[in-house]
Computed example of a mutant assay.
Amino acid sequence: MSRIPNSLLRHRITIEPYRGDSSTGPLYGPPQTVRAFVDEQTRAVVSPGGETVTSSSIAYCAPGTTAPPLSRVTLPSGRETKVIAALPRDGGGLPTPDHVEIQLQ
């Protein structure tokens, strides 16, 4: 299997990529709406800095989806959250769906 089937990506999320900080606060790129499967469940995850943090939800998206850490994400419920990490999940030829796992605060 090469990629997660679109039929499983039942939700739409909006990602505003984090671009850095300014004197007035964080800067974000233009919003992108992407298809996803959103699992709202609290769990402990490891941030890119190696710290254990709490994730309130995870969005599973098609391969190639870009969501840098600290990007702003709007979930189908309207709740805004931030990206902890976006992890590519590649089965390496195994019959598993390739996807991007976006861990959210």
Rank of each mutant, 00 (worst) to 15 (best):
I102F: 02
R43W: 09
I13A: 10
I15K: 02
T65W: 00
G20F: 03
E40Y: 03
L94C: 00
D21S: 11
V46F: 00
K82Y: 12
T65F: 00
R35F: 00
L70P: 00
A85Y: 01
F37Q: 06
V83D: 09
S23W: 13
S23A: 15
A86S: 12
R19T: 11
S55L: 08
T33I: 11
V53G: 02
D39E: 15
N6I: 01
G93N: 07
Q41K: 15
A59L: 08
S23F: 12
T81Q: 07
E80C: 06
R72W: 10
P88M: 11
D39N: 14
C61V: 09
V38D: 05
Y60H: 07
V100G: 01
A62T: 01
R72V: 02
S22G: 15
S77D: 11
E101W: 03
T33A: 12
L9E: 01
T66K: 09
E51K: 14
T14C: 00
N6G: 05
K82W: 07
C61L: 09
P30E: 14
E80D: 10
Q41H: 15
T96E: 06
G49P: 00
G29D: 09
L75H: 09
E16N: 12
Q103V: 10
E40L: 04
V45N: 07
T66M: 09
L75Q: 10
L75S: 06
Q32L: 11
A62H: 01
L27C: 06
G92K: 12
G64L: 01
S7L: 04
G49I: 00
F37L: 13
V53S: 02
L87R: 14
R10T: 15
L75K: 09
T33S: 11
E16M: 14
I58H: 07
L87W: 00
L75F: 12
C61I: 03
L87N: 10
I4W: 02
L8N: 04
G49E: 13
P88C: 11
V83K: 07
T14K: 06
A86V: 06
V73E: 05
A59P: 10
V83A: 08
S7H: 06
A59K: 08
